[in-house]
């Protein structure tokens, strides 16, 4: 399965027969994670906040290809995407393992992913470098088998996403 998560509406159309799901997070109701550890220690694998995030993180876990589209802020994901990524921790266990010489959480049934991140905004080279480092870190915690970051101007996001979809055989 392939998943597109965006923090904005996109000028794209996904054919229904394709195994591709697009979620515009800006159209959903997703609260902040409250750090209760409920998804690890009370109802393992399920968030106690029963809002729209609960139908997004199972899709993240099941996807073997993901395309994340997010504005950048201070070298990281802006608030819409970041809120969702924080709410995705039910896909991990509380327990730790060693990955590339560092301690990280054990994953539940999370498919290894080919990840592409389209990062947009008026960003400096410094901010872009920091974002690349962040995605490198995410790769270890989010089970990215490979990842690629593409930066673009806000007015070119649609064009960039269509290009990525063509590589997925859509478009």
């Amino acid at each position: 399965m392939k998943l597109i998560l965006s923090d904005c509406s996109l000028p794209i159309r996904i054919p229904e027969e394709k195994e591709v799901k697009w979620i515009d997070l800006s159209a959903l109701n997703i609260s902040n994670c409250v750090g209760c550890f409920g998804c690890w220690t009370k109802t393992p694998g399920r968030c106690v906040i029963r809002d729209d995030a609960t139908r997004v993180y199972p899709l993240i876990a099941a996807s073997d290809s993901v395309l994340y589209v997010s504005r950048i802020k201070y070298g990281g994901y802006d608030t819409i995407m970041k809120t969702m990524l924080e709410r995705a921790i039910p896909v991990q266990q509380a327990f730790l393992r060693i990955v590339q010489g560092e301690t990280h959480h054990v994953q539940r049934a999370v498919a290894p992913k080919q990840a592409v991140i389209v990062a947009y905004g008026d960003t400096s080279e410094e901010e872009q470098m920091l974002f690349r480092r962040l995605v490198e870190r995410n790769a270890r915690n989010m089970n990215f088998a490979s990842h690629r970051v593409v930066f673009c101007r806000p007015d070119l996001v649609g064009q960039q996403v269509r290009k990525e979809l063509t590589a997925w055989g859509i478009g």
């Binding site: 902040n32 970041k82 924080e86 921790i89 915690n141």
Partner: peptide, 13 residues
Amino acid sequence: PLYADALPVSLLH
């Protein structure tokens, strides 16, 4: 605390 490798979204806001 560190949240998903970065700042907690509440701080970002």
